[in-house]
Amino acid sequence: MLDKIGIAKRIAKEIKDGYYVNLGIGIPTLVANYIPQGMNVVLQSENGLLGMGPFPFEGEEDPDLINAGKQTITTVPGSAFFDSAMSFGMIRSRKVDLTILGAMEVADNGDIANWKIPGKMVKGMGGAMDLVASAKNIIVAMQHVNKAGESKLLPKCELPLTGVNCVKKIVTELAVLDVTPQGFKLLERAPGVSVEEIKKATLGRLIVEGEIPEMVID
């Protein structure tokens, strides 16, 4: 079974040289730490920055320089600032190659819910609806089951939707799965996790074909 860092490390392997990538809040933010050295990748922060760098050193925080999670950050050589309309312009016009975000639920047709629990959590969708409606490639980083042990990979989302038919791949503490027209297709198992355990934790349609390899995590 993977921890959060393991999930981030596995997702980092999906990033290719030359990619522009938008990372959501939570586990997706951690992915930045595991992009292979020497790879040309530009991180987009939807509040108006291309070329997001690491957190600043203590004492060097700049209140004018934050990421979409409102954390203090830095720039890198070649960074560019822009306004919010242009930011979502580059998202809508599919200039951003990969979007990685968290989810509360994903359905086996690629629907995603991650912004609202009616009567309980009222925070808003932020940029998530824009990102999922337009991104070329969406990878979801999430826990396979919720705290009550219930599957978050469902035949149909029960929570209010963020977007429809959009998720392409899911990485959880148990597995890597593709979203296909026939449902979730199991690609890899987390170290020490059996196909049976993944079947048990997946409520949506699950396709298991042949031998399922174990993930290789550095």
Binding site: F88, M129, T162
Partner: peptide
């Protein structure tokens, strides 16, 4: 949605009464 918010401001400043966006299709 955040991009919708930005673009509805933009539309006002550019003198366009409305814009089309895919954000939120199929949701509430």
């Amino acid at each position: 949605p955040q991009g919708t918010l930005a673009t509805r401001c933009l539309a006002a400043g550019y003198g366009m009464p409305a814009v089309f966006t895919p954000a939120g299709v199929g949701t509430e």
